[in-house]
Computed example of a mutant assay.
Amino acid sequence: MLDDLDRRLLRQLQADPTLTAADLAERSGVSALRATRRLARLEEQGILKGRRARIDWTALGYAVAVSLRFTLEKAQANAFDAFIAAAREIPEVVEIQTFLGRVDVRLYVIARDMAHYQQLYRDRILALPHIAELEALMTVATLKNDESLPL
């Protein structure tokens, strides 16, 4: 389990993933060596999975976001795997989630504009294998997008 120092380090890292080990140590009230060892242990335990850049895709000209919910035909044994493999090949698919229940898979798709989305939809999305049902939900606004945990 996490102790107080682990939580302090993780809170600081969530707030600013660009902090060096020395900065994390200073903000957490420990030595740089101790902070470095703790971070290494958290990585070994699979709790800390590295640092990454969060890129605002709207700043790069992607103005359309659509959540697509799929129910798959399950007559073939490999239907699910074939669908996921094909969906991974579409660069504009930025997230893939699987579910238990009526909906099997959700794809989160971004596009530059509606014309780009329509082209993706006709040429790539509808060509995905084993689709039984498809529901599209256009994103109007994202009210919360925070991956931080309450540590």
Rank of each mutant, 00 (worst) to 15 (best):
E147R: 01
R69E: 06
A82E: 15
T139I: 08
N145K: 07
I90E: 04
L42Q: 07
D4G: 06
D146T: 10
N145M: 09
A35H: 00
E147I: 12
D23R: 06
A63Y: 04
K74I: 10
P17S: 14
L107D: 07
Q12G: 10
L33Y: 00
L151M: 13
D104L: 11
L19F: 15
T98D: 14
Y62W: 08
R34Q: 11
V64E: 09
E95W: 03
P150A: 03
D146G: 10
D6T: 07
A82N: 14
T139H: 00
E135K: 02
G61Y: 09
G29W: 00
Q119F: 06
L120N: 03
R124A: 14
M138V: 12
T36N: 05
M1T: 05
L126S: 01
E95P: 01
R124T: 04
A141I: 05
E26P: 02
V140C: 15
A15K: 04
E95C: 10
T18I: 05
E92S: 13
I47S: 09
P129S: 02
R11F: 08
Q118T: 15
H116S: 08
R8Q: 11
P17I: 09
I47W: 07
V30A: 03
K74Q: 07
K49R: 13
D3P: 08
L128D: 01
R52T: 12
T18N: 10
Y108K: 00
F99M: 03
A82Y: 12
I131C: 05
Y117P: 08
L33P: 03
I47L: 14
V66R: 11
L48R: 04
S31L: 11
L100H: 08
L48V: 12
E92Y: 06
Q14M: 10
G50A: 09
S67V: 11
L128E: 01
V94M: 06
N145Q: 10
E26I: 12
T71K: 09
Q12P: 01
L143G: 14
V109C: 14
R54M: 11
M114F: 15
F80A: 03
Q97L: 15
T139N: 02
A63Q: 09
I84E: 05
R7H: 00
R37Q: 15
T20M: 04
A141P: 01
G101V: 15
A111D: 07
A25Y: 09
T36R: 06
D123R: 07
E92M: 10
D56R: 08
